[in-house]
Design a protein around this nucleic acid. Structure first.
Lengths: 338, 338
DNA sequence: CCGATGTTTGGAACCGATTTCAGTTGCGTT
DNA sequence: AACGCAACTGAAATCGGTTCCAAACATCGG
């Protein structure tokens, strides 16, 4: 109807058109109960007519809130993180927040650097699977609200998955299939997910009197997986658990290329249950985590923190995991004695 | 060394410590040539000691620049877009810009809505594979700088891929393998990529006197692909080209589930060459696009626009594509006459 | 009808930077 | 030593909102 403004329309323009002061415009828009119905009406009409949208920078300056949250992930091309991003964005938007996505490229130094420079631009951070040491991040986080995802920090709200139990499920599944020698292709040492997964495996494997070897992948990526494949094959393991699905896909690809049958000769389990896990041949058995809920809850925790709300039970949540059995796991091959 | 500030440190704090005015601090930090070496030195020392980082909101208010760019994508879980994000973030960071990522969920209405509400918070947008109609977006973009990716707009800078040629390469590859009946599983109608790919196919197929059927996938996703698979099988096509790799993976999965041999019974080609394309069984033949360069160039174009620079040759770039032949394409099956 | 109370409202201060403008300083000339 | 010019610096205005404060107004009870 009216022409869209080419120049920016400010609160003063609205005030002038509505015949009130800027203060009243601000009030009418922020909390309608503070002004008389008639005034409110005129202000809203004027704002709509001019297509007024408050300047976020100006608002941020007085309120100290940017209405932006930073989501820090190691690698957005890993579907686990892009899925979490979607959940985070969805929930954030409901509360009028935007999401500044930060990809650290799996590099702890970059992570620290980016967090430092962005700390003033966001109201809070969602640190997803941080790779940097807690103490390197701490200084910058003192002034900024933080919720960690996939990482149990000391006094920081966090939402995590029950990795230990997920690992247990994976191990017991394999043990039940007759596997006695398992291998774990680990992820980043700084990842608490990784430590917990390893711990879960160790416990279950030890309880069954079986054997577990572990390697650390050069990186938690597809290439890291292909590179680790030969190391795994050099052991006599009949089943491999990978730190995540992306590594598992790398392993699978190299195994197939080497003519090693999966699961005939070696069984394979991943973590995260990314969509692609179901698309491979054979489809990948994987430990599913509640990606959507992780993202949503993390935002809720962060907003609680920002608004000074307290959670009964504290802002710490551990979500259950569950094993999804697909075609990449099968009975242990018959071996020549043992 | 010094304690990190718990309260925010402003330009005044630095000024006081350095014994100069806030104005000089601003100058010393923004453009060192404007102040005397001695002053500059004291200011820098003071800023470092206090761990001063300028408040972006305050800066944005005066300068009118937020130093943030918005990257709008249909679906960040599609690796093509997450890879582009990484390239964009990398280049943006070099110039001191942050990236606000916006996932529209493939929905044109959401896209328009998000662009509208965020237009004031970013210096410019990178519209990646927009699904909304140009005229719906236009009003908001009049006031904001825009570069489109994978979309040729009328008077908007853009960086695209040579889809027509990529499609031609794919078609000719298949024709050379003896296929005479091809099918195209299309993407969103609003996508100019889609239109160009279809056009490229039509031209090449027509020139060879072969046949092309096309369907539109319900959505350019894995599920869209699996759903389209049966439609494709209902035709007598011996080769399928999918709008993108994600659809192709869905097709592949359903074909395999139906016991249809790829490429023995049907050949399959995707677009984008996402990393997962190489991991499937058989690995997917795909038309590669220059994801990294697309992202980088788009940022360059946008920054040029923001800084009022002119590009010789205009800010329009079309990058070459090339077919990567893998295992999902093979000779057309021998048919009972034809 | 008046004072007390409560609700609306506008003026002005403020958030933390940048930038204009004018004043000060330093330096090279003559 | 005085002058002019350039380089440097600080005070103050400004960006566009929010919010405190006090004034204006309306409402109510006595």
């Amino acid at each position: 109807m009216t022409d869209e403004p080419v120049v920016t329309v400010t609160i003063k323009d609205v005030a002038r058109l509505a015949g009130v002061s800027p203060a009243s415009v601000s009030r009418a828009l922020a909390d309608p109960r503070q002004v008389r119905p008639g005034t409110r009406e005129r202000v809203h009409r004027a704002a709509a007519a001019l297509g007024y949208h408050p300047n976020q920078a100006a608002r941020a300056l007085t309120t100290g809130r940017t209405r932006t949250i930073g989501l820090v992930v190691p690698d957005i091309t890993n579907p686990i993180f892009s899925t979490i991003f979607q959940a985070v964005q969805g929930r954030a938007r409901q509360s009028g927040y935007s999401v500044l996505l930060v990809d650290t490229g799996e590099d702890p130094a970059t992570e620290v650097d980016l967090v430092r420079t962005l700390a003033r631009q966001v109201d809070g951070f969602l640190l997803c699977s941080p790779r940097a040491a807690q103490e390197d991040l701490d200084p910058f986080l003192r002034a900024t609200a933080v919720v960690t995802i996939n990482h149990r920090g000391r006094r920081v709200p966090c939402v995590t998955s029950d990795n230990t139990d997920g690992a247990r499920q994976a191990a017991e599944h394999l043990l039940a299939l007759g596997h006695r020698r398992l291998a774990y292709v680990a992820g980043p040492a700084a990842s608490s997910d990784n430590r917990e997964r390893l711990r879960g495996l160790r416990t279950a494997v030890a309880a069954a009197g079986a054997e577990l070897t572990d390697f650390t992948a050069v990186s938690p990526t597809y290439d890291g997986g292909t590179a680790a494949a030969d190391l795994v094959l050099a052991t006599s393991a009949t089943a491999v658990i990978a730190f995540n699905d992306v590594i598992a896909l790398g392993l699978l690809n190299r195994f197939t290329a080497r003519g090693i049958g999966v699961p005939q000769q070696i069984s394979l389990v991943g973590f995260d249950d990314i969509p692609f896990a179901a698309m491979t041949n054979p489809p990948l058995t994987s430990v599913a985590v509640a990606k959507q809920q992780i993202g949503r809850t993390a935002v809720d925790f962060l907003l609680d923190l920002l608004d000074g709300r307290q959670r009964s039970g504290g802002s710490r949540l551990m979500l259950p995991t569950h094993l999804i059995v697909r075609g990449s796991t099968g009975a242990a091959p018959a071996t020549f004695a043992d």
